[in-house]
Amino acid sequence: MRFLAFIYIILFIFSDLYAVEPDEMLDDPILENIARDIGKKIRCLVCQNEDIENSNADIAKDLRVLIRKKISEGKEKKEIISYIHSRYGDFVLYTPPIRSDTIWLWVFPIGFLILLSFIFFRKKR
């Protein structure tokens, strides 16, 4: 059984369940925090529903490394996000870009709030 265990651990040695690896991280904690912040806004393209910070997929790792490289190069948060957006499309963003087809995501709730307030507090005859 010991031997089996050994085989298992060898087999799974590269299948870390977690995300960010120690060797990916930036030395400067402030920059690393910015990287985390960006990572939480980016969806892993091949997972069920995970951001790249919490995903163990290869593509998520590549993106994490890419983000940290760009930060080290002195790129702004916005620039990095729009770069990833332009490369991978809308699906990668957890907050969709505001456009004619997505604006309803904000318009409906606000409209709904106003409508409800009107219904509750309207003047009654």
């Binding site: 699906f91 969709p96 995501l105």
Partner: peptide
């Protein structure tokens, strides 16, 4: 949105 606008978007934790 995928049905009406044929666009593939995500809405997640930040939103």
């Amino acid at each position: 949105s995928s049905i009406f606008f044929k666009s593939k978007i995500s809405v997640g934790a930040p939103f």
